[in-house]
Protein backbone atom coordinates (compact mmCIF):
# COMPACT_ATOMS: atom_id res chain seq x y z
CA UNK A 1 0.00 0.00 0.00
CA UNK A 2 1.31 3.41 -0.90
CA UNK A 3 1.53 5.88 1.94
CA UNK A 4 0.63 9.42 1.14
CA UNK A 5 3.68 11.74 1.23
CA UNK A 6 1.78 14.01 3.60
CA UNK A 7 1.39 11.12 6.04
CA UNK A 8 5.15 10.55 5.89
CA UNK A 9 5.81 14.21 6.67
CA UNK A 10 3.27 14.24 9.52
CA UNK A 11 4.81 11.10 11.04
CA UNK A 12 8.18 12.80 10.90
CA UNK A 13 6.77 15.94 12.54
CA UNK A 14 5.20 13.83 15.28
CA UNK A 15 8.57 12.30 15.99
CA UNK A 16 10.07 15.75 16.28
CA UNK A 17 7.45 16.74 18.84
CA UNK A 18 8.41 13.67 20.88
CA UNK A 19 12.08 14.60 20.64
CA UNK A 20 11.31 18.11 21.83
CA UNK A 21 9.33 16.79 24.84
CA UNK A 22 12.15 14.42 25.78
CA UNK A 23 14.70 17.18 25.39
CA UNK A 24 12.67 19.57 27.55
CA UNK A 25 12.30 17.01 30.35
CA UNK A 26 16.00 16.26 30.28
CA UNK A 27 17.15 19.85 30.41
CA UNK A 28 14.47 20.77 32.96
CA UNK A 29 15.64 18.10 35.36
CA UNK A 30 19.34 18.66 34.68
CA UNK A 31 19.12 22.38 35.29
CA UNK A 32 17.53 21.71 38.69
CA UNK A 33 19.79 18.95 39.98
CA UNK A 34 23.14 20.65 39.35
CA UNK A 35 24.52 22.22 42.53
CA UNK A 36 23.87 25.85 43.32
CA UNK A 37 20.66 27.52 44.44
CA UNK A 38 19.21 29.76 41.73
CA UNK A 39 17.32 31.83 44.26
CA UNK A 40 20.46 32.48 46.26
CA UNK A 41 22.37 33.39 43.11
CA UNK A 42 19.64 35.77 42.00
CA UNK A 43 19.49 37.57 45.32
CA UNK A 44 23.19 37.67 46.04
CA UNK A 45 25.16 36.81 49.21
CA UNK A 46 23.72 39.74 51.20
CA UNK A 47 20.15 38.39 51.24
CA UNK A 48 18.85 36.64 54.36
CA UNK A 49 17.81 32.99 54.42
CA UNK A 50 14.14 34.08 54.78
CA UNK A 51 14.34 36.20 51.66
CA UNK A 52 15.83 33.30 49.71
CA UNK A 53 13.12 30.93 50.96
CA UNK A 54 10.46 33.43 49.99
CA UNK A 55 11.87 33.67 46.46
CA UNK A 56 12.13 29.89 46.21
CA UNK A 57 8.45 29.65 47.07
CA UNK A 58 7.58 32.41 44.65
CA UNK A 59 9.51 30.61 41.92
CA UNK A 60 7.83 27.33 42.82
CA UNK A 61 11.14 25.60 43.48
CA UNK A 62 9.84 23.99 46.66
CA UNK A 63 7.31 21.84 44.79
CA UNK A 64 8.07 18.30 43.47
CA UNK A 65 9.90 18.20 40.12
CA UNK A 66 7.07 16.59 38.05
CA UNK A 67 4.66 19.26 39.21
CA UNK A 68 7.17 21.95 38.37
CA UNK A 69 7.68 20.44 34.93
CA UNK A 70 3.98 20.11 34.11
CA UNK A 71 3.42 23.68 35.19
CA UNK A 72 6.34 24.81 33.04
CA UNK A 73 5.16 22.79 30.03
CA UNK A 74 1.65 24.15 30.32
CA UNK A 75 2.89 27.72 30.40
CA UNK A 76 5.41 27.06 27.61
CA UNK A 77 2.60 25.87 25.35
CA UNK A 78 0.92 29.21 25.91
CA UNK A 79 4.05 31.07 24.95
CA UNK A 80 5.25 31.78 28.48
CA UNK A 81 8.77 30.52 29.15
CA UNK A 82 8.95 32.21 32.52
CA UNK A 83 10.99 35.15 33.78
CA UNK A 84 14.71 35.45 33.46
CA UNK A 85 16.26 35.85 36.90
CA UNK A 86 19.12 37.88 35.59
CA UNK A 87 17.51 40.29 33.17
CA UNK A 88 14.23 40.38 35.14
CA UNK A 89 12.29 40.24 31.88
CA UNK A 90 10.26 37.43 30.28
CA UNK A 91 12.57 34.92 28.64
CA UNK A 92 10.56 35.19 25.42
CA UNK A 93 11.36 38.90 25.21
CA UNK A 94 15.05 38.17 25.66
CA UNK A 95 14.93 35.47 23.02
CA UNK A 96 13.07 37.65 20.55
CA UNK A 97 15.90 40.13 20.85
CA UNK A 98 18.78 37.70 20.62
CA UNK A 99 17.65 34.80 18.40
CA UNK A 100 17.53 36.74 15.09
CA UNK A 101 21.15 37.81 15.53
CA UNK A 102 22.26 34.20 15.88
CA UNK A 103 20.05 32.88 13.09
CA UNK A 104 21.40 35.55 10.78
CA UNK A 105 24.98 34.63 11.63
CA UNK A 106 24.38 30.88 11.26
CA UNK A 107 22.47 31.22 7.99
CA UNK A 108 25.10 33.44 6.42
CA UNK A 109 27.74 30.94 7.56
CA UNK A 110 25.86 28.02 6.02
CA UNK A 111 25.40 29.85 2.71
CA UNK A 112 29.07 30.80 2.72
CA UNK A 113 29.98 27.21 3.57
CA UNK A 114 28.20 25.77 0.57
CA UNK A 115 29.26 28.57 -1.75
CA UNK A 116 32.90 27.84 -1.02
CA UNK A 117 32.95 24.14 -0.21
CA UNK A 118 30.92 22.68 -3.09
CA UNK A 119 32.94 24.35 -5.89
CA UNK A 120 36.15 23.55 -4.04
CA UNK A 121 35.11 19.90 -3.75
CA UNK A 122 34.21 19.73 -7.44
CA UNK A 123 37.47 21.37 -8.52
CA UNK A 124 39.71 19.25 -6.30
CA UNK A 125 37.96 16.11 -7.55
CA UNK A 126 38.45 17.22 -11.15
CA UNK A 127 42.15 17.95 -10.65
CA UNK A 128 42.65 14.85 -8.57
CA UNK A 129 46.26 14.27 -7.50
CA UNK A 130 47.42 17.47 -9.18
CA UNK A 131 48.81 20.43 -7.29
CA UNK A 132 45.43 22.19 -7.01
CA UNK A 133 43.97 19.09 -5.40
CA UNK A 134 46.78 18.92 -2.86
CA UNK A 135 46.39 22.59 -1.94
CA UNK A 136 42.61 22.22 -1.62
CA UNK A 137 42.91 19.09 0.47
CA UNK A 138 45.49 20.73 2.72
CA UNK A 139 43.26 23.74 3.25
CA UNK A 140 40.19 21.67 3.98
CA UNK A 141 42.12 19.55 6.47
CA UNK A 142 43.32 22.76 8.11
CA UNK A 143 39.72 23.95 8.34
CA UNK A 144 38.61 20.76 10.03
CA UNK A 145 41.46 20.53 12.52
CA UNK A 146 41.95 24.11 13.71
CA UNK A 147 39.33 25.20 16.29
CA UNK A 148 37.09 28.02 15.13
CA UNK A 149 37.96 30.36 18.02
CA UNK A 150 41.57 30.33 16.89
CA UNK A 151 40.48 31.45 13.44
CA UNK A 152 38.28 34.08 15.00
CA UNK A 153 40.99 35.60 17.16
CA UNK A 154 43.59 35.45 14.42
CA UNK A 155 41.27 37.18 11.99
CA UNK A 156 40.42 39.83 14.54
CA UNK A 157 44.11 40.52 15.08
CA UNK A 158 44.87 40.64 11.39
CA UNK A 159 41.88 42.87 10.63
CA UNK A 160 42.69 45.20 13.51
CA UNK A 161 46.30 45.55 12.35
CA UNK A 162 45.91 45.83 8.60
CA UNK A 163 42.29 46.93 7.96
CA UNK A 164 41.99 49.65 10.51
CA UNK A 165 38.36 50.59 9.84
CA UNK A 166 37.07 47.01 9.41
CA UNK A 167 34.65 46.23 12.28
CA UNK A 168 35.79 43.40 14.52
CA UNK A 169 33.01 43.33 17.10
CA UNK A 170 29.24 43.78 17.22
CA UNK A 171 26.56 43.58 14.55
CA UNK A 172 26.38 47.22 13.51
CA UNK A 173 28.31 50.48 13.91
CA UNK A 174 26.95 52.59 16.73
CA UNK A 175 27.05 55.70 14.62
CA UNK A 176 24.30 54.46 12.31
CA UNK A 177 20.85 55.74 13.18
CA UNK A 178 18.91 52.47 13.16
CA UNK A 179 15.83 51.72 15.22
CA UNK A 180 15.55 48.04 14.44
CA UNK A 181 12.98 46.40 12.22
CA UNK A 182 10.14 43.90 12.33
CA UNK A 183 12.19 40.70 11.83
CA UNK A 184 15.35 41.50 13.73
CA UNK A 185 17.45 40.35 10.79
CA UNK A 186 19.56 43.32 9.85
CA UNK A 187 19.99 42.22 6.25
CA UNK A 188 16.23 41.79 5.73
CA UNK A 189 15.06 44.79 7.76
CA UNK A 190 17.67 47.01 6.14
CA UNK A 191 16.58 45.94 2.66
CA UNK A 192 12.90 46.44 3.50
CA UNK A 193 13.56 49.91 4.82
CA UNK A 194 15.72 50.76 1.83
CA UNK A 195 18.64 51.46 4.15
CA UNK A 196 21.43 49.91 2.11
CA UNK A 197 24.06 51.58 4.25
CA UNK A 198 22.76 49.43 7.12
CA UNK A 199 22.83 46.28 4.97
CA UNK A 200 26.38 46.98 3.85
CA UNK A 201 27.54 47.76 7.35
CA UNK A 202 25.88 44.61 8.72
CA UNK A 203 27.54 42.52 6.01
CA UNK A 204 30.92 43.96 6.94
CA UNK A 205 30.30 42.99 10.56
CA UNK A 206 29.11 39.54 9.52
CA UNK A 207 32.12 38.74 7.34
CA UNK A 208 34.65 37.78 10.00
CA UNK A 209 32.44 35.80 12.41
CA UNK A 210 30.65 34.03 9.56
CA UNK A 211 33.97 33.07 8.02
CA UNK A 212 35.35 31.80 11.33
CA UNK A 213 32.17 29.85 12.01
CA UNK A 214 32.08 28.21 8.59
CA UNK A 215 35.73 27.11 8.42
CA UNK A 216 35.19 23.68 9.98
CA UNK A 217 32.15 23.03 7.81
CA UNK A 218 33.96 24.17 4.67
CA UNK A 219 36.72 21.67 5.32
CA UNK A 220 34.28 18.86 6.03
CA UNK A 221 31.96 19.51 3.09
CA UNK A 222 34.83 20.00 0.64
CA UNK A 223 36.19 16.59 1.54
CA UNK A 224 32.83 14.85 1.34
CA UNK A 225 31.95 16.52 -1.98
CA UNK A 226 35.32 15.58 -3.42
CA UNK A 227 35.11 11.91 -2.48
CA UNK A 228 31.47 11.72 -3.57
CA UNK A 229 32.34 13.22 -6.98
CA UNK A 230 35.25 10.84 -7.41
CA UNK A 231 33.12 7.85 -6.54
CA UNK A 232 30.33 8.81 -8.92
CA UNK A 233 32.78 9.65 -11.70
CA UNK A 234 33.56 5.97 -12.08
CA UNK A 235 29.93 4.98 -12.60
CA UNK A 236 28.63 3.58 -15.85
CA UNK A 237 26.26 6.45 -16.47
CA UNK A 238 29.17 8.85 -16.79
CA UNK A 239 30.73 6.57 -19.38
CA UNK A 240 27.42 6.39 -21.23
CA UNK A 241 27.16 10.16 -21.52
CA UNK A 242 30.82 10.41 -22.50
CA UNK A 243 30.43 7.81 -25.21
CA UNK A 244 27.64 9.91 -26.72
CA UNK A 245 29.78 13.02 -26.69
CA UNK A 246 27.96 14.99 -23.99
CA UNK A 247 30.50 17.68 -22.97
CA UNK A 248 32.44 17.14 -19.79
CA UNK A 249 31.26 20.37 -18.17
CA UNK A 250 27.64 19.21 -18.51
CA UNK A 251 28.49 15.82 -17.07
CA UNK A 252 30.26 17.40 -14.10
CA UNK A 253 28.09 20.38 -13.28
CA UNK A 254 24.73 18.91 -14.17
CA UNK A 255 24.79 15.16 -13.73
CA UNK A 256 27.55 14.54 -11.21
CA UNK A 257 27.01 17.58 -9.03
CA UNK A 258 23.37 16.81 -8.29
CA UNK A 259 24.07 13.19 -7.52
CA UNK A 260 27.11 14.08 -5.40
CA UNK A 261 25.33 16.76 -3.36
CA UNK A 262 23.35 14.17 -1.39
CA UNK A 263 26.26 13.15 0.86
CA UNK A 264 27.40 16.68 1.80
CA UNK A 265 23.78 17.71 2.51
CA UNK A 266 23.35 14.79 4.88
CA UNK A 267 26.59 15.71 6.64
CA UNK A 268 25.43 19.31 6.87
CA UNK A 269 22.36 18.26 8.83
CA UNK A 270 24.52 16.41 11.33
CA UNK A 271 27.14 19.16 11.43
CA UNK A 272 24.49 21.64 12.44
CA UNK A 273 24.84 20.67 16.08
CA UNK A 274 28.53 21.54 16.18
CA UNK A 275 27.77 24.69 14.21
CA UNK A 276 25.48 25.91 16.99
CA UNK A 277 28.04 24.85 19.57
CA UNK A 278 30.74 26.84 17.80
CA UNK A 279 28.38 29.80 17.53
CA UNK A 280 28.47 30.08 21.36
CA UNK A 281 32.22 30.67 21.22
CA UNK A 282 32.24 32.88 18.14
CA UNK A 283 29.50 35.11 19.52
CA UNK A 284 31.48 35.69 22.68
CA UNK A 285 34.62 36.60 20.75
CA UNK A 286 32.82 39.01 18.44
CA UNK A 287 30.52 40.41 21.16
CA UNK A 288 27.66 39.41 18.90
CA UNK A 289 24.82 39.69 21.38
CA UNK A 290 23.02 36.72 19.96
CA UNK A 291 21.17 34.04 21.80
CA UNK A 292 24.32 31.96 22.15
CA UNK A 293 26.02 34.58 24.28
CA UNK A 294 22.73 35.00 26.13
CA UNK A 295 22.75 31.25 26.78
CA UNK A 296 26.32 31.29 28.01
CA UNK A 297 25.61 34.09 30.50
CA UNK A 298 22.52 32.33 31.79
CA UNK A 299 24.34 29.03 32.25
CA UNK A 300 27.03 30.77 34.30
CA UNK A 301 24.37 32.60 36.34
CA UNK A 302 22.22 29.49 36.71
CA UNK A 303 19.30 31.38 35.27
CA UNK A 304 16.98 28.33 35.14
CA UNK A 305 14.27 29.51 32.78
CA UNK A 306 16.72 31.09 30.40
CA UNK A 307 18.93 27.99 30.23
CA UNK A 308 15.97 25.71 29.55
CA UNK A 309 14.67 28.02 26.85
CA UNK A 310 18.08 28.35 25.17
CA UNK A 311 18.55 24.58 25.03
CA UNK A 312 15.07 24.10 23.62
CA UNK A 313 15.63 26.72 20.95
CA UNK A 314 19.00 25.15 20.01
CA UNK A 315 17.25 21.76 19.76
CA UNK A 316 14.56 23.31 17.62
CA UNK A 317 17.21 24.74 15.28
CA UNK A 318 18.82 21.35 14.90
CA UNK A 319 15.50 19.66 14.20
CA UNK A 320 14.37 22.27 11.67
CA UNK A 321 17.75 22.13 9.93
CA UNK A 322 17.51 18.36 9.59
CA UNK A 323 13.91 18.54 8.43
CA UNK A 324 14.98 20.93 5.67
CA UNK A 325 17.89 18.66 4.74
CA UNK A 326 15.54 15.67 4.57
CA UNK A 327 13.11 17.50 2.33
CA UNK A 328 15.85 18.79 0.03
CA UNK A 329 17.42 15.34 -0.31
CA UNK A 330 14.10 13.72 -1.07
CA UNK A 331 13.53 16.34 -3.76
CA UNK A 332 16.93 15.48 -5.25
CA UNK A 333 16.69 11.71 -5.03
CA UNK A 334 13.54 10.09 -6.46
CA UNK A 335 14.50 6.68 -5.05
CA UNK A 336 14.27 8.07 -1.52
CA UNK A 337 10.88 9.58 -2.24
CA UNK A 338 9.48 6.25 -3.27
CA UNK A 339 11.04 4.40 -0.39
CA UNK A 340 9.50 6.81 2.04
CA UNK A 341 6.10 6.54 0.41
CA UNK A 342 6.13 2.78 0.86
Amino acid sequence: MQQHPLVAILTRLGMFVLVMIALSIMIFVLARVVPGDPARMALGPAATQEQVEALRQQMGLDRPLPVQYLDYANKALHGDLGMSLVSQRPVTTDLAQTVPATVELVLVSVIFMFAVAIPLGVITAHYRNRSFDYIGRFLSLTGVTIPSFLFAITMQLVAARYLSDWPIIGRLDHGLAWQGGPTGFLLIDGTLAGRFDVVLNALKHLALPAFALSMAGIGQITRITRSSMLENQRKDHVLTLKSFGVPERIIIFRYLLKLSSIAPLTIMGLEFASLIGNAFVIEMIFAWGGFASYGLTSILQKDLNAVTAVVLVAGLFFIIANLIVDVVISIIDPRLRRKEAR
Partner: peptide, 8 residues
Amino acid sequence: LSSFNPVF
Protein backbone atom coordinates in the same frame (compact mmCIF):
# COMPACT_ATOMS: atom_id res chain seq x y z
CA LEU B 1 20.40 0.29 -14.41
CA SER B 2 23.84 1.70 -13.78
CA SER B 3 23.91 3.33 -17.20
CA PHE B 4 21.46 5.99 -16.10
CA ASN B 5 22.04 8.64 -13.47
CA PRO B 6 19.49 7.76 -10.77
CA VAL B 7 18.57 11.33 -9.87
CA PHE B 8 17.71 12.44 -13.41
